[in-house]
Amino acid sequence: METWILITIAAAFLQNIRSVLQKHLKGVMGTTGATFVRFGFGFPFAAIFVGLLAFGMDYPVPQLNMQFSGWVTLAALAQIAGQALLIQMFGHRNFTVGTAYSRTEPAQAALFGLIFLGDRLSSGTLVAIAISLIGVVLISIARSAAGTTALLRSVFSRTSALGLASGAAFGLAAVGYRAASLSLGGPNFMMQAAVTLLAAILLQTVIMLIWMWFRAPGELARIRAAWKIAALVGLVGATASFGWFMAMTLQTAAAVKALAQVEMIFTFASSVLIFREHVNKLEIFGCIFIVAGILVLLLV
């Protein structure tokens, strides 16, 4: 099995753990604070990754360049924008439908990858993306009373626009991170990914700190009070991101994001085993489609 596949599956698993931990944090702080900890508390671990590779494995640290700076800045801002759009969407009716549209991220990443990097995908990979997309949409709307009819009818609604914009932002971020990592030119995919992660997470931490200082100062105290679990979120989140960046250095962002839909299976399992939530038929069918899409992706 190819290296990028193993790394992506591991990263998806870790991201699910991070999401479970962040769900716990939401009980003691607001959305902004719970979002910040993945960046602010992840930064020290990102620095450790670079240090271990540089001093522990004697890999040279690549020299930064303007192309790298441009791509990593674009990607970091796009990721924050995608998260902000998701949060804004929660204030609208039928936000579940919007969430389903936000799951078009792999398809949009394929388009951005083709436009900006010339990444071309095989017909089999495109089919795999389509199949897994059906799966995540089914899971996204499974617990919505509106169902598939509302999904089709709301194509031109504000909620759907926010969902599509969020998916576009995350897709652009994925392609941007891949471009930034590749622009370093070496010494290997691990160091390139680690340096890209460190630069991105530093920028995001500074931006969110400034935002909270002026707009939500109370969050800073709540973050300090929950520093232990926040540090765990930072560790797991940074490790997951390191995995994503390594995988996207080795493979197109669209293929990585398509395989990353396996996270929905992990989330599904967490809902059932940890939070004891009820399972319905659409969720089961959604999982089947995701698994089918992943199998197609692995076999092409």
Rank of each mutant, 00 (worst) to 15 (best):
S102D: 04
I48E: 08
L126R: 07
L209W: 14
L220Q: 06
L172N: 04
V236C: 03
I131S: 04
F90V: 15
H92V: 08
G286W: 08
A165I: 05
L203W: 04
L182A: 14
W4G: 05
V136T: 14
Q204E: 11
F39E: 04
L52T: 07
F170C: 00
R158H: 13
T239D: 08
A47F: 10
L126Q: 08
A179P: 02
R143K: 15
A165W: 02
S157H: 06
A165C: 09
A84E: 12
A255I: 07
W227Y: 11
K26I: 14
I294C: 15
L114A: 14
L250V: 00
E283L: 07
R18W: 08
S69G: 14
A84P: 04
T149V: 11
T149S: 12
A247I: 07
L282T: 13
R143N: 15
T8K: 09
T239M: 12
S154A: 13
A292R: 09
K23D: 14
E277R: 04
E277G: 03
V127M: 12
F41H: 02
E283R: 05
V37S: 07
A258H: 00
S123G: 14
V136K: 11
I48C: 10
M89S: 13
R215D: 12
M66P: 04
T159N: 03
D58T: 10
L111Q: 00
F242A: 06
